[in-house]
Simulated scan of single mutants.
Amino acid sequence: MSTAAPATPTWQRVTQHRLFWPVVALVALFVANTIANPGFLSLRLQDGHLFGALINLLRGGSPLLLIALGMTLVIATRGIDLSVGAVVAISGAVALSFIASSSDPSSVTTVLVAIGIALALSLVLGVWNGFLVSVVGIQPIIATLVLMTAGRGVAMLITGGQITTVNSAPFKTLGSGFWLGLPVAVFVAGGVFALVAFLTRRTALGMLIESVGINPEASRLAGVKSRSIIWTVYAVCGLFAGLGGLIISSNVMAADANNAGLFIELDAILAVVIGGTSLSGGKFSLAGTLVGVLIIQTLTVTVTMLGISPSVTPLFKAIVVIAVCLAQSPKIRDAVAARRRRAARTSQAAEVAA
């Protein structure tokens, strides 16, 4: 008579979850910041708005979350998009140049038109990347490297090689405004996150994206339009990068073609990897991406709060990424599980001998 396998302990199921170690890393960062600054978790209400380090963290991480969401979908299809930083610069340059050249920069209509043009151009750039990858068949890293290299030059042409600044209250609201006590940028990023989560987890879209990432040829033979899926995720990634660029430029009210979104593509990729999404495609985790973004942003805030030079920030990011990735490594997990099984067998043998 066969006996049922013993149930896996709850603690073991928790520790084996893909988000366990990223969440542990995030909690450890929060604890370290609270020890260094006891007021880190405190919030204060001023003029009907919430202020504090956590609010700054959420607002500062909103553009990265938008870009990382698009990157998650692209990576799920076995792709990569290195051009999102350039799209950030182009989006901000287009919007601020249009507002600066208008007769009424403070007009809501002017700002809405500027945002619309910037997002439309960002979408077109994403479609271009998708065309190169899905239709022409160029490797994603090469296809997006083209725009990454040329994009900032395009932004420089748009701004005339100068840092474009504007004074527009409606546009400033996007990056620095508040609504219902919270930053508008948080609502924008949260709304996009909820929409993407609904479309990928409550419809068949998420399954189709994962199937393309696992085996594009098999998906095509099964009737999945893999070319359309890949084209779509690159277009969406470009659109989200453009929206993130608008928030970044709105926060400083300036378009700096050289520095806007610089290396943000690397932060987005790190956030996705920390969140447990494999670079080989297939299964992806939006919740993991959110945790990864919070880890990256908390590291940035921590370095600033401790008075450490920002140039050292990449070192801290590398340490955390290596630690989390090692903890998530299948080989290390298997080794730990094997060690636990050996310990359990030894314990059972000792009990029988006694």
Rank of each mutant, 00 (worst) to 15 (best):
G177M: 04
V154F: 01
T203E: 12
T165G: 07
K172Q: 11
V184W: 00
W179Q: 15
G190L: 08
I158V: 14
G153R: 00
Q162R: 09
A169N: 13
P140Y: 00
I141Y: 06
V184D: 03
V166C: 08
T165L: 14
T200V: 10
V196W: 03
K172E: 05
A169C: 11
A169H: 14
V154A: 10
P183R: 04
G190P: 00
L145R: 07
I142V: 15
V192I: 11
F178L: 13
V188S: 02
G160P: 06
V146D: 04
W179D: 14
L157C: 04
S168G: 15
T203V: 10
G190F: 01
L195D: 06
V196S: 03
T165R: 15
V184H: 02
P140T: 00
A169Y: 11
T165P: 12
A143C: 08
T144G: 02
R202F: 13
L199E: 06
L145A: 11
G151R: 02
L147W: 03
T165E: 15
F198G: 07
T159D: 05
F171E: 08
I141W: 09
R152N: 10
G177H: 00
A143R: 03
F171D: 04
A189H: 00
K172I: 11
T149I: 06
V166G: 08
V192M: 05
T173E: 09
A169F: 12
F187L: 11
A155M: 08
G160T: 14
L180V: 12
L147E: 02
A143I: 05
I158T: 02
S168R: 02
F171L: 11
G175F: 10
A194Y: 03
L147N: 04
P170A: 07
A155K: 00
L180N: 09
L199R: 15
I158W: 00
T200A: 04
T149L: 10
R201Q: 13
V184P: 01
L174Y: 03
G153F: 01
R152Q: 07
A169K: 15
M156K: 13
